[in-house]
Amino acid sequence: MSASILTVDDSASIRLTTRVALSNAGYQITEAVDGLDGIAKLKAGQFDLIVTDLNMPNMDGLTMIRELRKMPAHMGVPVIFLTTESDNDIKQEAKAAGATGWLTKPFDPESLVKIVRKVLGR
């Protein structure tokens, strides 16, 4: 059974890039357009991994990660966040919120798949 991934991003083109890259790599993709939508999708289903942007309208990524970490049903689900900053502060903040790893934008599809594989394992 292929792993299922929730991608959360307000940018349609990033969502598309991630969808294309990850479904080509054999993952099942569900999309959410912002943190609020992400939480709704999380309440409705189970995922093996979440890829999320940080800057989003309605609910930003950091808040969503914090909310997610309070949901027992999703205990320990890995979260990869996308960031344009190579800035360490943001990484620290996101890690403190409960993120697992990160990927710096712009990214190529291969590195996204690589990171997902790294976190999910075989």
Binding site: L49, R69, M75, G76, V77, P78, V79, K95, G98, A99, T100, G101, K118, V119, L120, G121, R122
Partner: peptide, 10 residues
Amino acid sequence: AMANGTNPLP
């Protein structure tokens, strides 16, 4: 680590 999504096995 595990709670935050890091699986040690990979």
